[in-house]
Design a protein around this nucleic acid. Structure first.
Lengths: 297, 297
DNA sequence: ATCACTTACGGGTGACGTAAAAATC
DNA sequence: GATTTTTACGTCACCCGTAAGTGAT
């Protein structure tokens, strides 16, 4: 059988055009590559190159062989990552999120529900989340809308509402009880974390005249917030998580626009339903508990 | 990168169930295979087996890996045969036939049209012919009916009519001029070549009460025909090819049933149209010549 | 003269086989 | 005791790099 390294060599030569360049690309000597090409021809029993004394180039057969070799290499790469993903899925609960709120909250419950498993969390674009779900990179993903598909199940899992975070001296704190809409604050300059996923798109869209000073890390963010008088953001989720109704003297004012509330949904591949049975039950029970609480008032 | 021999080893173990059996199957020692499996786990960075002191078996990850490895091995096999087929298609005109008549006649013209090419001929079932056409095994195939497809072109290329071949003493030679139908000869025992493709199916179907003494080779066939008084078969094509209107004292009597005439068609992949341009032109010109001859006579 | 490929030669990695040990049936 | 797997060890294949040779630009 023809070994993979020969196919890699062929593809490298196809890409580079000369043996010397391909050899450099492969980090091997050029004679070694020359021999590999000869060996490949020998194993196939077929001529793959047009040779002159000083020049070597792929003939039609060689080009076909190279393009088929590429497909084999790709499918081997795919196999390797698929096997690794599967293995890691046995040991870790890996989830992808569209915003930081659930990404901070859900691992708390996951470690309780699956005490022997590692928990890994990532924030990504919706496109990357759905792709990662399909390839097995993620065990589940959290989107900000329902996602129905024949291969997946979709469980509503709570909401998150955005708040403005203002210093007490800010004139808009008068609206503390009735709330502040996006349009009322449009034009202000905000301090904001860089990694807030969908929230960033939302605030930019709803307050097109505002400026947003982005901070790389959450640590630098809170430092800047403390040191600055600029308005910032919070959410019911982060307020609850950090158990501070008035953080560092800041006043939190709810944003009543419907866009300011994310309705999260957990999407899981149907084939993984059993593996995440406990998690699904947890989310469903929590959701009904929320609803009955809402109905009671 | 993971080499092919490791994937082969994994698949062999998947098939055989034990290292010893798989090692025997691969013609390597059992410790060598044991090491290969360890190496594979090491390269993947993943555990593929459930090991007890005396027993080793694939875990879920291992089974998935094995099934994906199988697909890679198959696609490498496919690549190798495809490349070899393509190469050989550059040097040889390879054709598949449904009956021996065209298979004896067409190579004569092919060697004239393509004097630098080797010519290879094979008789096969229609299924195998069409598959071989798609995989590049055959440059063209000859079927006994039109075959229209978006990927192929189809050129009528002559007919062949079956004859009974009788000794002069046979009572049915009285029908020499008006012809003999299948039903008139149904029940007789015939001598017949074994390798006649569609003709065999046809005669069995049209003369269900007859018996057919099959001969392996054409040489033994003609010997048996000469030595025997049994009726046999011929066709206008073989009669013309062997330039013998009355072969070894045999009388040839045409079979007027429409089923006794094959209408051959040459099927070529559209993508190979240029390569066989000369052949296509030859067939088309011959066909029109036949028709004008028919109209005149 | 430089570049590109091939051939020749020596070296080292690693895959293999044999042998032996451990454990299970 | 037979079978199966793993470990140990020596060997050999083979792939690699260096060096030299040939022909083309």
């Amino acid at each position: 059988m023809i070994e993979i390294y020969l196919l890699e060599a062929l593809c490298a030569f196809y890409d580079c055009g000369t043996l010397s360049a391909a050899a450099e690309h492969l980090h091997i000597s050029q004679p070694a590559l020359s021999r590999s090409m000869q060996k490949l021809e020998d194993l196939l029993g077929v001529s793959l190159f047009e040779r002159t004394k000083n020049r070597i180039a792929l003939n039609e057969t060689g080009k076909i062989a190279a393009s088929m070799a590429r497909r084999i290499l790709e499918s081997e790469e795919d196999m390797i990552t698929a096997v690794r993903n599967y293995d890691s899925s046995l040991h870790t609960i890996s989830a992808g999120y569209c915003t930081p709120g659930p990404m901070m909250e859900m691992p708390l419950h996951l470690t309780q529900l699956y005490p022997r498993m590692k928990v890994s969390s990532e924030m990504e674009s919706e496109e990357a989340l759905l792709k990662g779900l399909q390839t097995g990179k993620y065990g589940f993903v959290i989107l900000a809308h329902a996602y129905e598909d024949e291969d997946t199940i979709c469980i509503p899992c709570g909401t998150e509402t955005l708040y403005f975070s203002l210093i007490p001296a800010h004139p808009a704190v008068l609206f503390k009880d009735q709330g502040l809409t996006f349009s009322q604050m449009n034009g202000e300059t905000f301090v904001m974390a860089g990694e807030v996923g969908l929230w960033h798109d939302l605030t930019v869209r709803m307050m097109p005249d505002s400026k947003f000073v982005l901070q790389d890390s959450l640590e630098s963010l809170s430092a800047v917030i403390n040191a600055s008088t600029l308005p910032a953001f919070a959410s019911d989720l982060t307020i609850r998580l950090f158990r501070s109704n008035e953080n560092n003297g800041r006043i939190f004012i709810k944003i009543p626009d419907p866009e300011a509330t994310m309705h999260y949904h957990c999407v899981i591949l149907n084939q993984n339903r059993d593996r995440y049975a406990r998690w699904i039950r947890f989310l469903e029970e929590r959701e009904t508990a929320e609803h009955t609480a809402d109905e009671r008032g």
